[in-house]
């Protein structure tokens, strides 16, 4: 079966083809939800963010320039919206104890650890790291998350955030240092 490319789906969406827009949403919803979850730390906020983001994308779709990759444009629009939303007062606090059961289940279904003690240790560490990420300032959290969650290169992140590569590199380094100190502090 042939896959319809993003640009064609955008063009069809612009003519009012809702199936085409649904296909675009399906194509990007997982990546967007993971990004939103990593940045908010809970399912409700992540879902709200995704919903707002796709509705916003629908409104601004006519502005998409097909000379650029849709995925890059999409991530740029999404991260800009996330930045705006994350600057608003948080609806739900994120901390080690309130990382929700969705993450708990995800950790449990993760690669099985050799013994229960090791499994508990891994679970705690993942929770701690994600909580620390959620406490990063937004300007560090977004490039940091795009790097470690999506495995994007500094160049790709610079394109998405419309920042110089040097700034992206510095922000990821600063973010990594903060998280590293948080991990070390817990280890002691």
């Amino acid at each position: 079966m042939t896959t319809i490319d993003d640009t064609t789906l955008v063009e069809r969406s612009l003519t009012g083809d809702t199936e085409a827009f649904a296909a675009l949403v399906e194509r990007y919803q997982s990546a967007l939800f993971r990004l939103a979850y990593a940045m908010t730390g809970n399912r409700e906020d992540a879902e709200d963010l995704c919903q707002e983001c796709f509705l916003h994308i629908y409104r601004v779709l006519p502005k998409y320039n097909p000379d650029y990759r849709f995925s890059t444009w999409f991530k740029r629009v999404a991260t800009n919206l996330f930045i705006d939303q994350l600057r608003k007062p948080r609806r739900r606090e994120t901390c080690v104890d309130c990382i929700d059961d969705v993450l708990e289940r995800a950790i449990e279904s993760w690669e099985p650890a050799p013994d229960p003690e090791e499994a508990a240790c891994r679970r705690d560490e993942a929770k701690r790291i994600l909580s620390a990420v959620n406490r990063l300032p937004t300007e560090l959290r977004i490039p940091f998350t795009l790097r470690y969650l999506d495995d994007l290169s500094f160049k790709e992140i610079a394109e998405i955030l419309d920042l110089p590569i040097g700034t992206v590199s510095t922000r990821i380094r600063r973010g990594t240092e903060i998280i590293r100190r948080a991990i070390e502090a817990e280890d002691i």
Partner: peptide, 24 residues
């Protein structure tokens, strides 16, 4: 850090896209 991000869930259900289209 990479391992922690590996467990970030992907749990939007299949009806999500339909809901978005209806809302748009």
């Amino acid at each position: 850090i990479a391992a922690a991000f590996n467990v970030v869930p992907d749990c939007l259900d299949k009806s999500f896209a339909r809901r978005i289209v209806a809302q748009s």
